[in-house]
């Protein structure tokens, strides 16, 4: 639960007074371009970064006073792995479990289950350094679960992973959700957000641009379908074409070689386009996705 949550670094405002509430057992996603304030928000929730302003309660406690206690009940998967590359897979889990003051016997038992869960059992006695990126990421997740946390905080859990590794991770995160673990996730992948999150917030410039369930956001900020018209001729002025099609769609987006028409019925809009005598080189009708919402809310220009 946060009210007016703010994070400042000197003069720079990374998180600018956001409000949100995340329920137990919920999967909550934070989306946004680089520098939108996602990681700063996560680090504050994880009690790793002091709150500059506003109120934040995690598990009913105030991070400023009970940071250590709260951290004892959450698991953190940081953006960059902080594994010890020179220790073995199992030792990484053992030593991390000891930070939580768990008895060795308990850690060993859980470590075995978690290595099984993340399909790393065969590598238990290997050093971490030579493991693949996907394996390291899975180990980081296994490690974050060693304390049997109530909340799991995942900062870009699948960035840089191959599709197989991503799907395995998604599957594991889904199973954890079923076990009732609250998850807070940042990601750049819209499909991931759609797969994993019950609710999400799109952040931009330290503020929430929108918040809601993925389907809600699509309904609110986009149309059911998107019709894409492609023009191979580089001289085609797509903005000009959009003018001619005025009224055919709820919203147009003119890109250098494509024109996007946001509409509820792609087929009939396409028929209209053809009736007006326009013949794009290729056409595509697709369902609206979170990506459309994201780009609408945060713009298409590169942030950094």
């Amino acid at each position: 639960m946060a009210r007016g949550l703010t994070k400042r670094f000197g003069d720079f405002v990374a998180v600018d007074g956001i409000d949100f509430e995340i329920g137990r057992g919920e999967s909550y996603g934070l989306l946004g371009p680089n520098g939108a304030g996602k990681t700063s928000t996560m680090r504050m929730i994880a009690c790793m970064s002091p709150v500059s302003d506003g109120t934040l309660r995690v598990l009913g406690m105030d991070p400023a006073h009970d940071g250590s206690k709260i951290r004892g009940r959450i698991g953190i998967v940081p953006q960059e792995d902080t594994l010890d590359l020179e220790l073995t897979v199992l030792d990484n889990l053992m030593v991390y479990g000891r930070y939580f003051d768990l008895p060795r016997r308990v850690i060993r038992e859980r470590a075995e289950q978690l290595l099984d869960f993340t399909q790393l059992s065969e590598r238990a006695h290997d050093k971490v350094d030579p493991l693949s990126g996907g394996m390291k990421r899975r180990l980081t997740i296994a490690r974050s679960l060693i304390s049997d946390p109530e909340i799991l905080i995942l900062d870009e859990p699948t960035t840089g992973l191959d599709p197989q590794a991503r799907h395995l991770l998604w599957d594991r995160l889904y199973r954890l959700k079923q076990q009732g673990v609250t998850q807070i996730i940042t990601t750049h992948y819209m499909d991931e957000a759609e797969q994993l999150c019950d609710r999400l917030a799109v952040m931009d410039g330290g503020r929430f641009a929108a918040e809601g369930a993925p389907s809600e956001l699509i309904a609110r900020y986009s149309t059911r379908e998107v019709l894409e018209l492609r023009f191979r001729d580089p001289d085609t002025d797509t903005a000009d074409v959009a003018m001619r099609l005025e009224g055919l769609a709820e919203r147009f987006e003119a890109l250098p070689d494509r024109l996007l028409l946001y509409t509820d019925d792609g087929e009939s809009t396409l028929a209209e386009v053809h009736r007006l005598g326009l013949s794009p080189d290729s056409t595509l009708i697709r369902r609206s996705t979170l990506e459309d919402v994201f780009l609408r809310l945060t713009g298409r220009s590169l942030v950094d």
């Binding site: 940071g67 940081p78 960059e80 902080t82 930070y99 003051d101």
Partner: peptide
Amino acid sequence: WLRTYFAMLATPLT
């Protein structure tokens, strides 16, 4: 390099 301190600070350690 290993960022071990940060791993520690993600746990109850201060």
